[in-house]
Design a binder for these strands. Structure first.
Ligand code: SF4
Ligand code: SF4
Lengths: 144, 144
DNA sequence: TATAATTAGCATCAAAACAGTGCGAATTAC
DNA sequence: GTAATTCGCACTGTTTTGATGCTAATTATA
C-alpha cells in the first residue's frame, strides 16, 4: 500500500528517541513515553539489534543505545531492517524466485524500477539525525 | 510495506497498453495478452473508470479507452485511484479520525511528512506517457 | 429480432501480511 | 539474592490483499 508498517514507524520513533537522549534507554521507558505496545517495540528493537543499528545492554538498568552516530544511520538501513528492501512491485527483491507471470512481457517493469530507485535514494540520503533534528524532539521530556 | 499492490501494478499495465494502442480495448484482450486474472483486471478498470481515468464502451466490441492523452495522466492519479492517497504512516490521509495514539508526542511526524511529499511529488511528475515510452512497449504485439 | 460480447455492480472466499501478545530462559546491576 | 531487563520462539486475531462468482444491463452485428 505504499506505506510504512507500524513496526517501522515505532522503530523510527525509538531510534529518534535514542538519538536525542544519550545513555542507555530501556524498552519500557520508551514504550511508556510514547504510548507504544511494549512487547511490539521490543520485537522491533531486536530486529534493529540484528541489523547492528543499535547495541543492547542486558540485565538490570540495561537497554539500548545507538550503534553509530545518528548522522551515520540512514533511513534506508532502518526500513530495510524492519521490512526488507523496498521492492515497489512483486518482481523485485530477492524473494527467491518470486517471478511474476507477467514478467516476460511486462511493459512497466523498467520504468517502475526507476521510480523505486528514486524513492530508495531519498531514504538513502536521509539520516536519522535529519529526523532527530526536528523541533518537536527538543520538547519531549526525558524520563528515567 | 512501501510497495504498490498488484491491483496498481495491473492498472499500470493496462493503462500503458491503452496508451500504446489506440482504439477500444476489452478487458479480455488485455488480460489475455499479459497473463493477468481477467476478473481482477476488470475490477481495476472499473475503479479507474470511477476516477475518470478511462472511459468505458459497453456492449459487444466494447471496452475501455483512455479518458485523456497519456501525457496528461499522472501516476499519482493512478495510484490514488487504486489504493488511495499515499499516507506513508497511519496518521495521515483522511481516514476519518484514524488518529494514532502517539500523535501528540510523535517525534517523527513532521519529517516523515516531508518524505511522503517527496515520494508523492515523484508520482505527480511522472506521466503515463513516461512509462508508455519505454522500448518494451513497442515490441508487444497487438491483438483484436 | 436473436445472439453473443462486454461492461456494471454486487457479494464472497482464501491467502497473505500485519499488529499484538505470552512465556520462560539468560543476563546483570545493585 | 532480587529485581530489572534483554533474548528467543511461538502463537493468536485482525486487516489487507488477491482472486473469483453470478446476474443484470448494454450494444454491435448477423
Ligand atoms: S514483472 Fe511487471 S507485472 Fe510483474 S511484478 Fe514486475 S512490474 Fe509488476
Ligand atoms: S503520529 Fe507518529 S507514530 Fe503515529 S502514525 Fe504518525 S508518524 Fe506514526
Amino acid at each position: 500500500m505504499l506505506q510504512l508498517t507500524k513496526r517501522t514507524d515505532y522503530g523510527l520513533i525509538a531510534l529518534t528517541h535514542l538519538a536525542g537522549h544519550s545513555g542507555v534507554r530501556s524498552v519500557r521507558s520508551i514504550a511508556d513515553l510514547y504510548p507504544i505496545p511494549r512487547r511490539l517495540l521490543a520485537e522491533v528493537l531486536k530486529d534493529l539489534l540484528h541489523s547492528h543499528l543499535v547495541e543492547s545492554h542486558r540485565g538490570a538498568q540495561g537497554g539500548y543505545t545507538l550503534a553509530r552516530p545518528p548522522g551515520e544511520i540512514m533511513l534506508s538501513e532502518i526500513v530495510e531492517a524492519l521490512e526488507g528492501a523496498p521492492s515497489l512491485t512483486s518482481c523485485e527483491g530477492s524473494h527467491t524466485e518470486n517471478s511474476c507471470a507477467v514478467e516476460a512481457v511486462c511493459p512497466i517493469r523498467s520504468p517502475i524500477h526507476v521510480l523505486r530507485q528514486g524513492i530508495w535514494r531519498m531514504l538513502e540520503q536521509t539520516a536519522l539525525s535529519d529526523l532527530a533534528g526536528w523541533p518537536e524532539l527538543a520538547r519531549i521530556p526525558s524520563f528515567r
